[in-house]
Each structure stands twice: as structure tokens, then as C-alpha cells.
Amino acid sequence: MYAQMIKSTGQGVKSLEEMDPQERAFQERINAGGKIEPKDWMPEGYRKNLIRQIGQHAHSEIVGQLPEGNWITRAPTLERKAILLAKVQDEAGHGLYLYCAAETLGVSRDQLTRDLLSGKMKYSSIFNYPTLTWADMGAVGWLVDGAAIMNQVPLQRTSYGPYARAMVRICKEESFHQRQGYDIMMKMAKGTDAQRKMAQDALNRFWGPALMMFGPSDENSVHSAQSMAWKIKMNSNDELRQKFVDECVPQAEYLGLTVPDPDLKWNEERGHYDFTQPDWDEFFDVLKGNGPCNTERLAARNKAWDDGAWVRDGLMAHAAKKRAAKLAAE
């Protein structure tokens, strides 16, 4: 989900016999379910891959504040306002835990931020879609957080210790996110005609992009195979996407809403829902920068960074003055 543009050596996964002793010991530890910690030896590829994935995961949390942050000032009740604000605040917190995990690998948060702002690093494609009505707050919580949870729960068992621990903390907080979204959908779907229409419209717009969050089929991807061998990736994209569809359909049915897929059908033989693949051309367009909100999202993050420079510098300067005064007094 956050592994866009992550490339391995491209040479395919080595077998244990092909590895030199150091790498073999490393891989055997991973195979046995052990954790790799910051001070341990690790192949350069593992380290680079993790920096990219954790970094992009962190960026996704931060950029992910924007589509929902868009509705905080227009939330329709005091309670909804507080709940939405708490959720968006959580996303900032998640970004923070993940940046700190990435930093254990020798990269600074500021550098990761600069790479995001310059476009060098990516964030999850879903956040390039606009939130147009209050019902979108429901759809985003239900579908987008739902998809994220599906990806994040297995990541609690990822091989890199700091990443796994960040995921444990995040998963505990994430369940509230999905529930608050679904709660909004329930209220809207059983509300006035206008609210029902709003809810259906939100589902129509977010269904495809939510399916795209898992990434295109990676059955034949050499990069995915390496990530799986290293337990940086725990499931294939198709696996997760299927699981997501199977869970969402009854949830949509309960709401009395229609999933915008005319070919959606329960397949008794497979024991899963058959569904239409999302528009992968659209997905690659969005990755290239042509999504509805790519420009705005990056502009907002750049502005916050640039406008905030004097604040960061000022507080640092003050801390330095305090330190100097303390030393002088001793």
C-alpha cells in the first residue's frame, strides 16, 4: 500500500544457500519470526526498502489529514466536530510514530519531509481525491481506514522491530477511525432523502479509489516477492483486496446502499465475491501526479512547511539561548 516506486535489486529472491553467512543468519531470524532491531546487521536493500516504505506510510498519514481536515470547520454538530478533530489528530500522531521508526534507520524526519515536498517520495494515492460532502467523512472512515486496517493488522508482525511496534500502537487507535466513519454512513443512509443520496454519492466516488489503495496485482512482481521474503510485506495485493471486498459488501447491504459495480456477485465456488477491477489507468495517472488533488495536497504541505520555518527556527534559537545561559550560570 505504501510501497509505490519501491524497487529491490530486481534480481529475485535469493535462496538461503546462495546467501553469505551474515545474510543467511539475518534471513533465518526473519523466517523464525524474530525481529530485526536498529543496531542489527541488515542488507542495504532491506534498509533502503524499509526507509522508503515506512517513510511513505508516514507521509500518507500526514497528507491524509488534509481530505478530512477539510471538513472540521464545517462539521454539523459539536460532537461530530470533536470526533473528526480527534481522528485527524490521530493521523498526525501516526505519522509521528512512523517517522520516528524510520529515523532509527539513519534518515532524519526533515529529510524525509523534504523528499515528500519535492515529489521524490510518494504517499498513498487515495489522498489525491477530494472530499465534497459530509457523507465523504463517512465513506473515508469506513472504506479508506477500513482498507488501511486490512493492511496494517498483519504489519504488526513485520520483521523490523520499530515498525512493528509503531503498527501495534496505530492499530489500537485505528478501529475507532473506521467505526466513526461507518457511524456517519449509518446516520446518513437512514436519514433524509438528501442525506441518503449524499451517502450513495460518496460510496460511488470512493469505492474504486479504495480498491486501488491495495495496489495493482503483484503476482509476478519481483519486488513484492523480496518484500514478502523479508516480511516487510505480509500479504499480496490481490489477497487483501479480495478480503476487503468480502467485508464491505455486507456492510454496504446493511446500509441499504449499492456498491457501484454491476458485476459484483457472490461466487459460491470460490467462496468470495467476484468484482470488477478498478480503473488501473486512473491509478497510474494519479501516481504520475494527475489525480484531482495532487497539486493541492503538496501545495498545502509545502505551505505549512515554509510558513512554519520561522517558528521552528525561533524555538530552536531560544532553546540554544537557554542552554548557553545555563552553562554560563554554572
Partner: peptide, 29 residues
């Protein structure tokens, strides 16, 4: 204060301001 969410100069400040806003909204009720 809630208008700052997602736009603050630094992450830790974003979280702190949101806490302030949440307190104030609670007191409002």
C-alpha cells in the same frame, strides 16, 4: 484553533493545538 489541523509548523504542534481545540469544544458543550 481547529483550523490549524493539518497545517501547523511542526507535527508535535499540530497535535498540541488539536488538543487545545478539543478541550475548548468540550467546554462549549
Amino acid at each position: 484553533v481547529s483550523e490549524w489541523c493539518g497545517h501547523a509548523p511542526v507535527l508535535e504542534e499540530d497535535i498540541a493545538l488539536a488538543n487545545t481545540a478539543l478541550d475548548l469544544i468540550g467546554q462549549t458543550t
